[in-house]
Write a protein that binds this DNA or RNA. Structure first.
Lengths: 125, 125
DNA sequence: CAGCATCCCTATAGATACTG
DNA sequence: CAGTATCTATAGGGATGCTG
């Protein structure tokens, strides 16, 4: 797994029996990662600034760190154009794109269950 | 979405276009949720103490809170037996179990890509 | 046994200002 | 434009002790 991605971890036992899952989840569950992936699934290529504008609410710090993690996990690719007003584009890698199917299914699952959402113990908190 | 689950959020724009996904991810990305779901997929029914022992490393505080969230999202069901040494069992709901397929695929995806893991910029940090 | 309350520490992420 | 650097607040989560 990543060094200390911290948002989502599975313990050792589960890692052993379920490392694929742990890996997938570890990779996918940063605060904004799925936003980014989602936009890149829709738009093919996006510049840093475009992402920043689309994911309004995210700080530059977060955007960069999430992009770096995604890149380091080889889900996205960073393309630098050596121009004078610098230009950087991000796009999904083959690996990143290969998530499309699963994410679509997950999204479908979500849609299917989103409506029937009657929390059991909503009164808590 | 949940009130302030905070671990994983999608912003408004993305929520609109992708609310199913956001819902799914919001539900699934607590610190230990997938551990719990994983064990319940494997074991059908587990008592509080069993979970605590299996997910060694989790604190009671966390276990309870994750269980509550899962329950409140109707992924798991809490069954209380009115006995004198109290007994509580947790099991997946139909909804929870319906994730099996996707989680299996995700796990498979993870396994497939786990090995070919050569981080692009591992030297960062 | 199952779970809640409290204290407290640390990592995470927000804001802001700066650079190649 | 595309990031970095720093500073700080907050809250997530660990440890501990208590209760029905």
């Amino acid at each position: 797994m990543r060094k200390e991605s911290s948002t989502n971890t599975l313990n050792k036992e589960n890692l052993e029996s379920n490392c694929g899952m742990a890996y997938a989840i570890g990779i996918l569950s940063g605060r904004w990662k799925l936003s980014i992936i989602g936009y890149l699934l829709a738009h093919e290529k996006l510049r840093y600034g475009e992402l920043k504008r689309k994911i309004e609410g995210i700080s530059e710090r977060m955007l960069i760190s999430q992009l770096k993690e995604l890149q380091s996990d080889r889900l996205i690719e960073r393309i630098v154009y050596p121009e004078v007003p610098p230009r950087v584009e991000y796009k999904l890698t083959e690996k990143g794109r290969s998530l499309d199917h699963i994410l679509t299914e997950l999204s479908r699952w979500g849609k299917r269950h989103y409506t029937e959402n009657t929390p059991a113990n909503a009164e808590q908190r």
